[in-house]
Design a protein around this nucleic acid. Structure first.
Lengths: 143, 143
DNA sequence: GTATTCGTACTCAGAACGACTACGATTCAA
DNA sequence: TTGAATCGTAGTCGTTCTGAGTACGAATAC
């Protein structure tokens, strides 16, 4: 129902926290879809990005599913961000390239600024681990 | 033609730079639409936000148009950001509110994080003036 | 009075996103 | 070997967002 959001990032982080429970046993996308308010296929697609980044692994078939490749305290939100967002624009501050020279100068300046702000944000995300987001880490069972 | 972007911010900044030229004489949205690759109506809507924020004024009728209320060196990009974006979410890191307690904890944590990152970005924008984006300030004529 | 310009409501097209279905491929277990 | 479970992925659909564009009334200058 909601619209404008980086929901993939939230789904990824939420899934990672779920994978820390159950003693690290693999969990299926179907299983996680009940805790995360999202479609199993969508979850698979998002986690696919995380797999490409080496944060999780997946195995098809019975008793298959997803599991972490390292502890949640060794995964930063910056890792998740890079895996999910890749190089896609964050702010998109720069609009269409105009014809007039003043406009081009402004556009290039905004492009540089966009990159600086993005770097700053990712740097802050790098200082936060997934484990830090879990209230009472390793003591709460998802419902 | 392009899609995913905060083009309003770019339009606003570009318009402000245009208003610094011509010796501060009022310019019409039609006039600016030729330099900015955007529709006059769209420009009026964006500048309307800036007017609400007190950054520009407008006057209808012949010889009307828009002009700055202060020097471009006294307008920060943070001012423009707040005028254009308001309180709308920037990252939207937090997804749908899920039912399970772990999920709620993660969601609230992401909500707090979102606010922190937004504050950080706006603080950086506050340190940059519109004038700083103009190459050779007061020496270039828009075409 | 006429031309100019803003203010704003309305519609339209395109892109993006997630939900959902479907189905093949893979893996485990009996 | 059969069947169930699960991933991988293509495809479609509906919703939402955004900007483009049209239209027209109100205000202003000459």
């Amino acid at each position: 129902m909601p619209g404008p959001l980086n929901a993939q990032f939230a789904v990824a982080v939420h899934a990672l926290t779920l994978l820390t429970s159950e003693g690290g046993a693999p969990q299926s996308s179907e299983q996680m879809s009940r805790s995360i308010a999202a479609n199993p296929v969508h979850i698979r697609r998002v986690l696919g990005r995380l797999r490409e980044a080496g944060l999780v692994t997946s195995r098809p078939g019975a008793k298959g599913g997803w599991h972490l490749t390292r502890s949640a305290s060794a995964v930063s939100l910056g890792d998740v961000w890079r895996a999910v967002q890749g190089q896609s624009p964050v702010f998109g501050l720069h609009g269409v390239q105009p014809g007039c020279p003043v406009g081009r100068g402004v556009t290039t300046a905004l492009t540089v600024l966009d990159q600086q702000l993005t770097d700053s944000v990712v740097a802050q995300l790098d200082d936060i681990t997934v484990a830090a987001l879990i209230p009472d880490f390793a003591g709460v069972e998802p419902g």
